[in-house]
Nucleic acid binder design. Sequence first.
RNA 1: UGGGGCGUAGCCAAGUGGUUAAGGCAACGGGUUUUGAUCCCGUCAUUCGUAGGUUCGACUCCUACCGCCCCAGCCA
Length: 558
Amino acid sequence: MSDLEEPTHFVKKIIQSDLDANKIQRVKTRFPPEPNGYLHIGHAKSICLNFGLANTFAGECNLRFDDTNPEKEDSEFVRAIIEDVQWLGFKWDGEICYASDYFSKLYEWAQHLISVGKAFVCELSMEEMRLYRGTLTKKGTASPYRNRCPEESLSLLEKMKKGQIDEGAMTLRAKIDMGSSNINLRDPVIYRIKNLKHQRTGAKWKIYPSYDFAHGQGDALEGITHSICTLEFQANRPLYDWFISNLPVPSKPKQYEFGRLNINYLVLSKRKLKKLVDDRVVDGWDDPRMPTIRGLRRRGVSARAIRDFCDSLAIAKTDGIVDISQLEHFIRDDLNQHAFRAMCVINPIRLFLHNYDPAKVEILQIPRHPNKTELGFRSVPFSSMLLIDRNDFTEDSSLSRKKFKRLVLGDYVRLRGGYVVKAIGVDKNSKGDIEQINGEIVEDTVGQEPPEGCKPRGVIHWVSEVHSVNCTIHQYDRLFNTALPEEGSQPFVDYINPESLVVKKDCKAEAGLADASIGEYYQFEREGYFCLDSVLGSQSNLVFNCTIGLKEKSSKYS
RNA sequence: UGGGGCGUAGCCAAGUGGUUAAGGCAACGGGUUUUGAUCCCGUCAUUCGUAGGUUCGACUCCUACCGCCCCAGCCA
């Protein structure tokens, strides 16, 4: 019984049994985005599934753009999607594929269907077609054009293709079954006229195939064995199969559906994400609060964390809502292992050490990672004039040691990686605000236990005032203040958390952070995980995004 | 409402006639700790949507009922 056993799920089982039964020699999957928006974490689940399957079964995975609707698509999205897939750490097999590569073949196949009496050109308007289609409970009625002879349909289709027919005036429909209880089978439209330039084929085509007519055939042409999509396509599967069995396709792929990813406190639909961008609720598709791949990346979430999270997800037929804490767990888990440690004081107040030579500067060597000293040490200057966080000091000595593990007037605290110090007094201004804490070090306590009787209450972070570097910190909170923003009585934008971004200026970071670079991950000890913002940040203007805070005991004093 | 799916803990789930009903997240206790982090240990479903039935034995099979999701784009 090994605990290293790979988790299995129904798609893996199907593939394994197809392999065992010799139905296929090799698995081939595909990730088929429509280039009409940016990828988000929901897509990442599909990417990890498809590429992951190819990887675990030593098969192949294609990247194919489902570009059948020029109305919504753009080459900018193609570029961005390619970049995101690569950043996530995946490499597709062979060349990138496009549904538009198959337009000619699809056209031939449309002609084939007409020839064998299984498709016809219909002149019903959109409105009429809706009426003829029937309803969930009422069967549809046949289009008056349904029995038009193949020759006529063929020549009409030719005219549609050449742009001789007005948009909306005609469509090509598969002739299946207007009485089917599955509405998708009631003579679905397979070609529509769109007098639009396509991002790849330009003005060559005036007609474009529908998703249903393009997807399965694209799979067949690429030799996809297992075409995995989300649950909402279950009703399309009979149609998928119908085309595969009625067309002279080179292979017979099968469609399988799994539950798409939902996460609470987040919204994962291109349409809604676009609204956030268009309404300027966020700063763009790569705003660190966005669940897009680019947003997460800019926020400081690594590709590995996203992959680990996706791999932890169930591939099942239930449509559940994953708790965001599960995502956060994998983000912290990865960062904890890989982020270098550093110190940064977010709400600085001076701590002046009266028994430390003002002219002296010690360069302390502190591990980059406390649990991995093999990663080396960093140099942190120590002097008599320090800065600590205002929240790490109190004059209230009645607080118990368990309740307040920081600096208290008259008591001791350990400065992380440095001396144990004691607070001996405060300087206040006329309003009574503390302007400086006065303290003193306990000699010989760097890297050593303090003498008997001296018990630091805890460990706090600090920086040397003159050596510190100024920085700005962007702290994020969840974008929505309700778990299911799409299910409230109000439009989802009404649930936006107005404090999802808090900018803290004039924070003081340890000297070494002057060399912070984009793409590097840091843990600011006792605060959280941070990264240099890839858009606003630079070495001359340090802007750090808080990827996520450290986990805190609920009993923590705040 | 016709059709197609799905209901196992607060969340995600494994489980396919006999197991003490996996695992992860969350939560809660305790230990370690120069990060209130990490790490470690422990607790957390007498019960599988409900009600019947079959069976020596049911989360697994049958029946009925209930609930949720998807489909009536010339979107994907």
